[in-house]
Design a binder for these strands. Structure first.
Lengths: 133, 133, 133, 133
DNA sequence: GTGGTCTAGACCACC
DNA sequence: GTGGTCTAGACCACC
């Protein structure tokens, strides 16, 4: 299994699972329709309680990243076609603001920051373009 | 006082204070040497327990954003000249990664995202260039 | 076949079948004596396990919506003439209570709600009055 | 404490708590700003585990029925001013459809049903108009 | 004191 | 086998 989790981190373990899977979907490591490991299997793999993993899956379903088919498993959801509402865009703008603040306090120039963002975008795109066969 | 805090938000109140002041420094609203309100004044102003504000100031000092001179008050610290260590750069890269992940799940295209980052940079720079007199 | 089912919904698939057929009977799309498709045909049509469809038919029989005649098929039951017992009326009252609670939390005014109920009634009646020939 | 819960019912206990509190808010038994019992107190009162109550409160916060102020307690939220999106109105329409279907299978005439809905509205309004002093 | 998270372990409905 | 719910009990951050 590719996923790792740090129980001592300040972000809750179930949130770390949510974020890691969202990242894998964004990178194209997980594709629409792909089946996730079962709650119990992933729990054993990460040496966590199954409740913690179940909570992560519920949150992922709520955020429409996966579809949970009771009795059959959890699957990566199709990409949403509706445009996000304004309150969801605010979340991105909040992240950007935090990023700019941190960059300033790290003495990171505008160009250096933009270069890092572009590098990240390139990395994501490269993986997405890749093939899994 | 310009600062506002939302007790219902999920980020702890003391963290909101830290972030708001770091943002004001980054925007140039607060300049090196500027004096911050006293812990008690700010606590009264925000109707918070003074312990909460004290904790925020401690954290700001730890992050070298302010200098606390006992009995004299708290002041915006001088800009650091040393380059940040690798562990601090990782923090920025983590924020960038989270930003790219959220942007993907919001169906935000690369260009739209870069435009939003540039817009934020422009907004910060404009304020910094400004004059307070 | 007219019926569709969503495996990702939180209501169990067999319940969705039960509800859909009860709705068709209420709307007059299905009339007393009409023959339902066989369990296996419907299972194939909906790409479901036949156990799931069988369970739905059992439930429909228990609720006296259909009659299952072994070896002959399942048929829409005759309209009941006896008045419902108090425990069944409680079910309707429970639904009304839930409806009023949801309407309140959606800021839906009394008149708006009544208008929606009346609109629903009108829609049902129109279909029932219609002809299928 | 006014609230009761049935552990043998098919709706999960945490959902029963959510529904009961939403109903009390809709009826005006709970008013904006009212403090809910603490998670632990309510758990003791209902002889439930505190986790179950905590989950109910989290769901109520997600549905914007209450505000949870960490370390201070949970409070009935102010009535929302924004109009609900179309997907939330669909929830009400789904409830209305279910109500009409059940009413038909209970031989309940249109007028009887409307009378019951109006009776419910009257009951809710009477309580809301009341005074608690 | 307040809510949030987590483990260990049980039981259940659905497929 | 799959996810969902619940208890008992522990530990933690925040106020």
């Amino acid at each position: 299994m590719w996923l790792r989790v740090d129980p001592r981190a300040s972000t809750p373990v179930y949130r770390q699972i949510v974020d890691a899977i969202k990242e894998d979907v964004a990178r194209g490591v997980l594709l629409t329709g792909d089946r996730l490991p079962s709650v119990r299997d992933l729990a054993v793999d990460l040496t966590l309680n199954h409740n913690t993993v179940a909570r992560a899956y519920q949150e992922l379903e709520r955020e429409q990243v996966i579809d949970v088919l009771r009795g059959r498993g959890a699957f990566v959801a199709a990409v949403r076609t509706d445009r996000p509402g304004p309150e969801r865009l605010e979340a991105v703008e909040g992240l950007i603001r935090r990023l700019l603040v941190e960059a300033h306090h790290l003495q990171l120039g505008d160009d250096e920051l933009l270069a890092k963002v572009r590098a990240g975008l390139g990395e994501f795109r490269r993986e997405k373009g890749g093939d899994r066969s």
